[in-house]
């Protein structure tokens, strides 16, 4: 292990400890009821995690995505990716700034805009971000995605001059969802394995039934593929092929998400279908995140149109470029 990967591991371990301590089932349920996880947020800020992706931090951007994946393994109900990237693009970290999609004069799908000082309205077509302050004049409509994560609409108010992020903003947010899906799928595999080993029926652990074993083998394959795809996209940061690598990765993990969530529920039986069980905090995130920042069809078509331009005789060269 080289120094760079050791530093990343240290960072991930620190984040892991914070999330394991503070992000439990009651906190997830409270967040879903609209209660902002203040203590967790403050702890992350005290440890400097909110500044991780800033160019002044000296930390490789890939490390920030490794932390985003760690947070996803715990279903952390905070807009970590949005805050990290907003602070990066604003080159400031004193305020709480989230990111959503520009729709007319409003910002939609902005995580926790109700709590934020401002939201950046992302226009993918122009790759610009318009800062919009949350104020008394700006109406906030609270909402949530299918995982119960805060996704708000911020009305038109106090627009500042557009920011040029200097890098593909939509694709970086798509990468954030990609690595997060891989993280949540890793957790689903662990939960399914644990449950299959503990649960007994017909006088033995259900993990001893071949039908269950084969389903879990499918899950392991999809999780391994999702993890490798997400890692490859992180490794492509700053590369000329970055956008296409994100396309391939988001499409691949999106496919894995549906398969893994389905089997994880099947293994857990009716227990996993209850709100009381923690499983749904992870499966619903997998389902929600595959649709955020471009679903499989969107990214498959983007990649596919590019390859149609490359043509049949250049196809292999494209696929075999970059180990």
């Amino acid at each position: 292990m080289n120094n760079r990967s050791e530093t990343r591991q240290l960072l991930v371990d620190t984040a892991e400890r914070i999330f394991a301590d503070l992000c439990d089932k009651p906190l997830l349920d409270a967040a879903e009821r609209g209660e902002f996880p203040r203590r967790l947020w403050d702890t992350l800020r005290e440890n400097g995690f909110h500044e991780l992706a800033m160019r002044s931090s000296g930390v490789p951007l890939g490390d920030a995505f490794a932390v985003i994946q760690t947070a996803a393994r715990h279903a952390v109900p905070l807009p970590l990716a949005e805050v990290l990237l907003a602070n990066r693009w604003l080159d400031a970290s004193d305020r709480f700034v989230t990111i959503g999609l520009a729709r007319g004069d409003t910002v939609i799908d902005a995580p926790w805009a109700r709590m934020a000082d401002a939201a950046l309205a992302l226009d993918p077509a122009g790759n610009t971000l318009v800062p919009m302050a949350r104020s008394a004049a700006a109406a906030v409509a609270t909402g949530s995605n299918l995982a119960g994560e805060a996704r708000d609409v911020l009305g038109a108010a106090q627009k500042a001059a557009p920011i040029d992020p200097g890098e593909p903003a939509y694709e970086l947010l798509a990468l954030a969802r990609t690595v997060a899906i891989a993280g949540v799928l890793q957790r689903l595999l662990a939960l399914a394995l644990q449950y299959a080993n503990e649960r007994e029926q017909f006088g033995r652990s259900i993990s001893k039934f071949q039908a269950i074993q084969h389903n879990l083998a499918i899950v392991a394959g999809e999780v391994a593929a999702a993890s490798r795809a997400a890692d490859a996209a992180i490794d492509a940061l700053g590369d000329a092929r970055f956008v296409l690598e994100v396309a391939a990765a988001k499409a691949r993990v999106g496919e894995a998400a549906g398969i893994v969530a389905e089997i994880a529920h099947q293994v857990h039986g009716a227990m996993g279908y209850t709100h009381e069980h923690q499983l749904h905090h992870f499966t619903r995130r997998a389902w929600a995140w595959r649709d955020e920042y471009g679903n499989e069809a969107y990214w498959q078509q983007r990649l596919g149109r590019h390859l149609a331009g490359v043509g049949a005789d250049g196809l292999w060269n494209f696929l075999a470029t970059r180990g």
Binding site: A225, R228, A229, L303, G304, L315, L319
Partner: peptide, 11 residues
């Protein structure tokens, strides 16, 4: 489909 197949082969 082209994009989907490519995403699988790359991975």
């Amino acid at each position: 489909l082209i994009g989907r197949l490519a995403s699988h082969i790359m991975t």
